[in-house]
Write a protein that binds this DNA or RNA. Sequence first.
DNA 1: CGGCAGTTTGATCATGTTCAATCACAGTGG
DNA 2: CCACTGTGATTGAACATGATCAAACTGCCG
Lengths: 262, 262
Amino acid sequence: MPAPDLYRARMKAASRARTNSPAPFPQAAGSNCSAHNCHSCDVRSLSLCDALADSELSRLDRITRRHRTPAGATLIREGDPMTFACNITSGTVRLSRLLHDGRRQVMGFLFPGDFIGLTRRNRFVFSAEAITDTDCCNFALEDLETLSKDNPRLQRKLYEMACSELDAAQEQMLLLGRKSALERVASFLLEVRQRQLQQGDDEDCIILPMTRGDIADYLGLTLETVSRSFSRLRQEQVIEICETYRVDLLDCPRLQDLSGNS
Amino acid sequence: MPAPDLYRARMKAASRARTNSPAPFPQAAGSNCSAHNCHSCDVRSLSLCDALADSELSRLDRITRRHRTPAGATLIREGDPMTFACNITSGTVRLSRLLHDGRRQVMGFLFPGDFIGLTRRNRFVFSAEAITDTDCCNFALEDLETLSKDNPRLQRKLYEMACSELDAAQEQMLLLGRKSALERVASFLLEVRQRQLQQGDDEDCIILPMTRGDIADYLGLTLETVSRSFSRLRQEQVIEICETYRVDLLDCPRLQDLSGNS
DNA sequence: CGGCAGTTTGATCATGTTCAATCACAGTGG
DNA sequence: CCACTGTGATTGAACATGATCAAACTGCCG
């Protein structure tokens, strides 16, 4: 059973810990994206907006359904019919898949700008759970298809997003198939750093809103092994664990070496 | 070092073993696909053809460069600039990635109809090697982009291929992250069966043109572990190893159970 | 026949898992 | 205010799965 309260506490603390914490959703709802000054885009930019000309944005607006999901709650349940796609605008989401006996594989962590729905299946094969309070924009699949039919740029954008995800998935296959526990954890820390750089947080102090168990299920390890790897990196002065969910990357070049990516 | 001669021998034997062995490339070069009666499509159907109206096929024809690669030879070297995409029309190709110290992860095996080039990177991050003699159609990336720019159906087809690959990659992440050795091997056999069903070989006797080492590097195991898993499945009467590279699936339901997919 | 590449099988080893105890921290209630 | 509780993290010890090392086997080709 998840513990929404604790998750929310973690989220709040993590949020506080960020130097320039962005305005949360309720305030941002009426604000406009810098590129288009439009309603559909959020502060952090809704990735589909980039693909649309100003004149087409109102159509996107009309098919957009905003949702807020509290930390610990479920956005999508494994097996749900795939009737909509979803764009995260704030928060962190965990995508995971279960084997019949309860073994879990976390397929990925989603941050603002990330998209759910790049699949040809007619049901979701993973569940999506909010790790922190999460805002997203949902689009009925048929609406999105209608819109993309006469929007080559939107179609192109979807294609590019799928390709990017594929690149990331292949990177993860290499990690899961061939890397040692320490290499996996080092790679993970660098991946999170990379994501947070893209978000504009340009420090070497990274926020990990997910639990050690989540990280373990993402890396194909147990939470104990993840914890031991963190400890070892700390002992070797490569990282500093400021708080459980806040890690300072003291020596990124070293971390790069340890990640196995030459 | 690869052993081209042996690979070729394996391929020939495997080919002979198929009941309805299709005509190899040299003869098929002038033949036309059933759907369009066109030059670009091969007997086994070139996936891009499906997306094009008859009138547009000549444009595809003009940018198509056919290649034959002998077994054991390299189509793409890791690090090569991504200047072209590639559609396999016959044969089997291995996509693999190396870690600096030589550990190898096989990202996938490609069969007729499969496509290389669904990425946003400007260099190939994997190498592609022909396991058997292989025919493919190459397209300069800029030509393909020009063509897809005013062909929404082609753009859509590329998007769908990327999504399919993504679904497959996520399946593989679950396998690599959470399945036991035996479950991985069982899943692999069923995957190959599924692929060969799609190719029209509707028997429970599957052909494995790749070596045990290739399979191991695909499943994140060692070749010894793969071999032992095969032996165990044989002992338990779930499969019969007719020849090294030909396996009879005696009990598919059982294999399904053993694969971990409930 | 001998050599070679690939496979199979056995014995030993090591990495990461499992089981278990303790710690840390926040929230809660007497 | 402080003990009590619950969740998650850390650390230790024993264990197991799969890796590594090694030898024998198979089939093909020269």
